[in-house]
Design a protein around this nucleic acid. Structure first.
Lengths: 252, 252
DNA sequence: CTGGTCAATTGGCCTGACCAATTAGTGTAT
DNA sequence: ATACACTAATTGGTCAGGCCAATTGACCAG
């Protein structure tokens, strides 16, 4: 099952071998791997080397190491891994479209659940945002707090986390470079106004209104983005087969 | 410069400390870190522990380890780092609720965009799923393909990826253990029927119907889950402040 | 000044051991 | 017979010390 190893950066080779076994289906998701000591013997390497390889896979999110229990396959294919190379990060318009669809649903749901405490959280984020339109870091943090704050109203940690993760995708170098071309006090003030509309709809328990306000906000964000290129991307018309071309145009 | 360490998953703590020193600017990009032996002494841990921590940082792309030379800071900010859980995964009901909200919106949007080729993809997944109800691995793969296939109709890579990621959360050991208690040919056949209803609504371009079918599917999944515990979790009533109690009840 | 050799530094890997968390098995009490 | 508590085996986490190989820089010969 496990074949010996050759040379050079052993723990990498061990990691590669186990990774390919997971990708190839030899090791099924959920399956428990042999114990570290046993792996070491079957691979003819020492246990520290096996440990190092497993730590690599754990950081990559492929396996889950549980003290006293064992090592389990968590997922089959390597996650995006935006490490040194491979830039599978989707484009800004794609991201904003995805956020429009997901966060609209979240805002709709949140509107029917919001309590005064939840609104207070949104108000606090709004205040920080409007008072910090001249500081990119402050306003970005407040922007994030507002969007995750809406998700948090539902009281579902998964939703809150996904919302935060999608927001954080704008923090990539490429995204940040684009943003620096058009983000400024003016655009941020517009965003604050849109946020306030969302907040009001949620506070009023207006689900449809919250959904519409959120869609309007993210659509206008797309527009602000595209105007800085003199291009016309509605984002709504983008389809999978056109995606590559659109992204190429943006990058040029 | 380097302070000692406390306890619990030492190599993680060491990695965290060095990572924060890089983020905080104490360690500048390009700078060479102290030798492994020296780090071990200053941190009052053993050298293998330091090695494991450094391997974590190398996989994350923060440092570059060069044989015989030293360890150098490559990048200052950690990339998004989706997987590697610093926090425990959310509970199954929480996940299904999140999927209900997000995938309903996706199904709604997909229904108004679906082309015959897209439906063919769903049909293929449905066929694999119904013919493999006796093999957990097969049916799980087909289940995943169906849900990501719906997201793919919109032609937005971010949506497709997020959908896949949420699905993959059920692959954790804890989740898998729960699933093994009730997943079987019978429950899978029910899931296939629900999938077929979703597929028909999307094929007919019925946005509202697709949304309703998707919600029904994920709600019934919750029910199948909860029935195996004799508990009553609607999932819809769960709120953040009740989450801990609910999860505790599940685990018992 | 140029080129090559050699030794110090540093990461890569190993053996072997002990500790701590988890799990499964066993036995006892109800 | 069942439920619970306790023990023992399994398994990951950490440590210690050592040897090897790659890199680097100083030193020396041409």
């Amino acid at each position: 099952m496990f074949s010996p190893i050759e040379s050079r950066r052993l723990y990498r080779q061990v990691a590669d071998q186990i990774r390919s076994m997971i990708a190839g289906g030899e090791l099924v998701v959920g399956q428990k791997l042999p114990a570290e000591r046993e792996l070491a013997e079957q691979l003819s390497v020492s246990r520290p080397t096996v440990r190092e390889a497993l730590i690599v896979l754990e950081v990559e999110g492929l396996v889950n190491i549980r003290m006293g229990s064992g090592i389990y396959v968590v997922r089959r294919h390597a996650v995006s891994m935006a490490a040194s190379e491979s830039e599978p990060v989707e484009g800004p318009f794609e991201l904003l479209q995805a956020r429009a669809i997901i966060e609209c649903a979240i805002a709709e749901e949140a509107a029917s659940r919001a309590r005064p405490e939840d609104i207070a959280v949104l108000d606090e984020a709004l205040m920080r945002m409007s008072s910090g339109v001249n500081d990119a870091a402050t306003v970005l943090a407040a922007d994030r707090a507002f969007h995750t704050g809406i998700a948090a109203i539902i009281g579902n940690a998964t939703l809150t986390r996904v919302t935060g993760q999608m927001f954080d995708m704008r923090m990539t170098p490429y995204f940040a470079k684009l943003a620096s071309h058009f983000e400024g006090p003016t655009t941020w003030r517009s965003a604050v106004d849109e946020h306030r509309a969302i907040r009001d709809a949620i506070a009023a328990g207006d689900a449809a209104g919250a959904k519409a306000a959120m869609r309007s906000h993210l659509t206008l964000s797309q527009k602000r983005f595209s105007e800085s290129f003199g291009e016309e991307f509605s984002g709504e018309e983008e389809r999978g087969r056109d995606k590559a071309a659109a992204k190429g145009a943006i990058k040029t």
